[in-house]
Design a binder for these strands. Sequence first.
DNA 1: CAATAATCGAGACGGTACGTCACGTCTTCTT
DNA 2: AAGAAGACGTGACGTACCGTCTCGATTATTG
Lengths: 215, 215, 215, 215
Amino acid sequence: MRQKSPAHESGGKGPKRSPGRPRSEQARVAILHSTLELLGENGFFELTIEDVAAHADVGKATVYRWWPNKAALIADAFASSATRKLHFPDTGSVRTDMSQQMRQLVKIFRSRRGRIVSAILGGGQSDRDLIAAFRERFLRPRRQEAYATLRRGILRGELRENVDLDLLLDSLYGPIYMRFLIRHDKLTSDFVDSLCELVLSGAHPNRKLRAHGSN
Amino acid sequence: MRQKSPAHESGGKGPKRSPGRPRSEQARVAILHSTLELLGENGFFELTIEDVAAHADVGKATVYRWWPNKAALIADAFASSATRKLHFPDTGSVRTDMSQQMRQLVKIFRSRRGRIVSAILGGGQSDRDLIAAFRERFLRPRRQEAYATLRRGILRGELRENVDLDLLLDSLYGPIYMRFLIRHDKLTSDFVDSLCELVLSGAHPNRKLRAHGSN
Amino acid sequence: MRQKSPAHESGGKGPKRSPGRPRSEQARVAILHSTLELLGENGFFELTIEDVAAHADVGKATVYRWWPNKAALIADAFASSATRKLHFPDTGSVRTDMSQQMRQLVKIFRSRRGRIVSAILGGGQSDRDLIAAFRERFLRPRRQEAYATLRRGILRGELRENVDLDLLLDSLYGPIYMRFLIRHDKLTSDFVDSLCELVLSGAHPNRKLRAHGSN
Amino acid sequence: MRQKSPAHESGGKGPKRSPGRPRSEQARVAILHSTLELLGENGFFELTIEDVAAHADVGKATVYRWWPNKAALIADAFASSATRKLHFPDTGSVRTDMSQQMRQLVKIFRSRRGRIVSAILGGGQSDRDLIAAFRERFLRPRRQEAYATLRRGILRGELRENVDLDLLLDSLYGPIYMRFLIRHDKLTSDFVDSLCELVLSGAHPNRKLRAHGSN
DNA sequence: CAATAATCGAGACGGTACGTCACGTCTTCTT
DNA sequence: AAGAAGACGTGACGTACCGTCTCGATTATTG
């Protein structure tokens, strides 16, 4: 922040602009960036609105004017941050499609952005709005793509027809989230591959559905 | 708290008691219990040391005398709380052994104690000591038993000999933790059963290890 | 406190107001009054900043924002309190001028405000800023007037020309402060009169300066 | 403290010793000395019982067993400290007798012990027992001697017969205490001499008692 | 072009919890 | 019975942020 705004986009038709000074886009962006930056340095609780405002060179009230609380701010900041590189390829093999995307996810989890995700998931344990924002803005969009990828696998005969897609996806991603959050073991690309191998082979059509307890 | 202690355990030999008034066992227990109780009502951040002390009828300084921070207190309180009912049975079937224990875990996660676990895992995202305490005092002991259970399965020919036990366990528990923490889907006993079915079938000996990319 | 401030003094030219919410005059005054009130009830050490803030219906931080410590607060409160009725008359007689002012001082010392003075002088023994504040804001201004009064007496021939004004003033006021602080004897108007009589007669011109040791 | 007591005087007759371990003289002395030492470093409020006990290598409870509060401890410590060199000479001249003793007092006030006196007088402003202890154990004994000195002066015709001794003493010592406590001016031997000169000349028989306002 | 209106920064406000310190009391073992 | 050691409940300390509230200044639309 801290500079004269030459903005003045005023793009033609506009849906009825209200009078008064318009919201400063610079402030909005600076706040969201500062939030992400500070969140990457520390965790959820260490992040203070006071720091965000100071770091963004913005009045504290400007933050509160647009975001009701810390969780909403973080959720917004996270959502606004570009999350490229997480699309699913279509290589003709479910296993390859999934493992490539999962490798990218792991790469993100291990990067600076991972700290932000962990802050959101951590803070979300005591703020249901925050965890909801994570689900809606991060998890669900990717789930939709994942469904499509898996359905392609079913059509190709790589997966059982009656497989529970949600179960399958949680079996694939759950171990990653677990290792990411509990940090009890390494979160590597090899782990991702082995994980895909193990879980997807469990969903392979060859394998007949075994009755409970029998073999 | 708040009562005269007739304690005087003085159990025989004793390893050379240090001078001075001994630490109050009543205070210790009252603090840990209050911590768990208050943690069950709210989350990590809502828990204040001030409340814990007041609820335990104890001086704030007594809390700080023995625990350096909130995380250490919570970790201790959690560790001290009885975690019964999480032992692995030995029914002769890996799938049954695992699914029974996992059902118990899910039951705990869905109970009052679940709030405490979520507070620990949530708070642990910004306090490495807290998450470490969870690993050491909760996760690891159960992992040891789980290894034994899985090894019995290997010996019985229910699992591949070369299966990666850590991968297998994370594949079984990861989805549970994920649903518990992200709350995007139901965490039921049926889910546990399907999960076991899916993952353990992927580790079944009949299934030949497929070379990467092939079928 | 706790009410909307319609203040808005805005007195004309103004020396360039600094940005931000202006300091609350209500809070300032409420704090100083509470300080004096509580100081009158107890002593220096019994006075707590916490009580002052609560009594003034003000946040504790507001007190600390403007006064670095208890001593500074007390000094300010004392200085701000109107100290009327301590001016020196000009009756044509030094003795009358002095004794009238001294009687007023004694009356103050014996009043509620006396407790405050004793708190300042007592606390000042372990805080040099506090005692300095007393000197600068209370003692010195009155000394200036006293000098003038004594000089008038010199001009009128009531006092020796070469009399040491500081010595004379300390001889007049010292006994009052001593009885006030040590409380070993009564602090009455009669005492003041006798004191003036004794000391001023020692400064009378008739009395020739005696060589040391002679008579 | 902190050493094995080889004392064990057990000197025969004794007036009925009570059973149990006798009070430790070492502890008593160490506590009083530590009190004086620490009081000399800081003021009344900075002195903590905790520091005294630690410095004397003594249990805190031992202090509280024998002294009900800080003021009593300080009063005792001060009284126990040798106050030599404050006796009044008998030179045949009141002025010399007084000024010599007053010079000694000033020397004490300006020494390390002065800090202790100021701590007592300062603390005494919010503790009436402390100021009372100062009066009884320090001031009064010396006053008794002073009375004798002044009476000798009266008998010798150096002072008026009807002079108010208390007024005279306060006029002599008050200025010293005032300068000592308020520190607004130098406290020197010359000051003492001039003070004696001024005040005692006011009590000289030659000077006739002037009616109020007249000359 | 003024009036109106909503924003901006700055920063003070009343609060709450923090983590520390000393209080004066107590409980233990030792002398 | 007194000693030292040291833990206890209490309560004030001074700090850090909370979320709210004035301020003057800025930037737009509206009359």
